[in-house]
């Protein structure tokens, strides 16, 4: 994602910078460009003479458009899979049952006031996301260690994913009263 954003940014920066330089006369020593129109009348003549140019340019534009569409689809897919995991029905059912156990076990740890669990991602890149609300002075490090050693490990076993990466976000619980 980051590389694609950087590539788009580099292309835009180079195009904008080159157009700015051309407008300010940086290339005038070579082409005397700054006073000429943007769509030069010489361009249609060139495309008529070089028959290969338009089909090649159209092909490149097609590829760029296709890459952009694929990029959009991948982003949409990743967004959807954050909420609806792309897993088989059996795994999803097992995950639902195991999530209840995990949340209950987490709430039983000292200082934990609330815990929410969600399995996301795809079969090849699954993630378990947990949100844990703790009381202000809770031993967060201990809760984190206990969760990883016990309840989370049981969850992994229950759904048959021993290498499932787990992401836990801690936040202090809202004070009551």
């Amino acid at each position: 994602m980051r590389i694609a954003i950087a590539a788009t940014g580099t292309a835009l920066l180079l195009c904008g910078g080159a157009a700015l330089a051309a407008g300010l006369g940086a290339f005038d020593a070579l082409l005397a460009l700054s006073g000429r129109p943007l769509l030069d009348p010489a361009l249609p003549r060139f495309t008529e003479d070089a028959g290969w140019f338009l089909p090649v340019a159209a092909g490149v534009a097609e590829i760029v458009a296709l890459a952009g569409q694929l990029w959009l689809v991948f982003q949409g897919r990743a967004l959807v899979h954050r909420w609806w995991p792309d897993l088989d029905p059996q795994t999803r059912a097992a995950a639902r049952a195991a999530a209840d156990d995990l949340a209950r076990d987490a709430r039983g740890l000292p200082g934990v006031q609330d815990a929410r669990v969600r399995l996301t991602g795809t079969v090849t890149r699954p993630r378990l996301r947990m949100r844990v609300a703790f009381a202000g002075d809770a031993l967060v490090s201990e809760v984190y260690g206990e969760l990883g050693a016990g309840p989370v490990e049981r969850y992994r076993k229950a759904i048959g994913m021993p290498d499932l990466p787990v992401v836990i976000r801690f936040r202090p619980a809202a004070k009551r009263g």
């Binding site: 950087a6 835009l12 920066l13 910078g17 407008g23």
Partner: peptide, 27 residues
């Protein structure tokens, strides 16, 4: 109808360059 040194063209070119820089910073 516009030349490369037209002020509107220069502003648009600067805008494209700034957008590119913003994408680079975001990366």
């Amino acid at each position: 109808g516009r030349a490369w040194n037209d002020p509107h063209v220069l502003i648009a070119a600067a805008g494209v360059a700034v957008l590119g820089l913003a994408f680079l910073l975001a990366a």
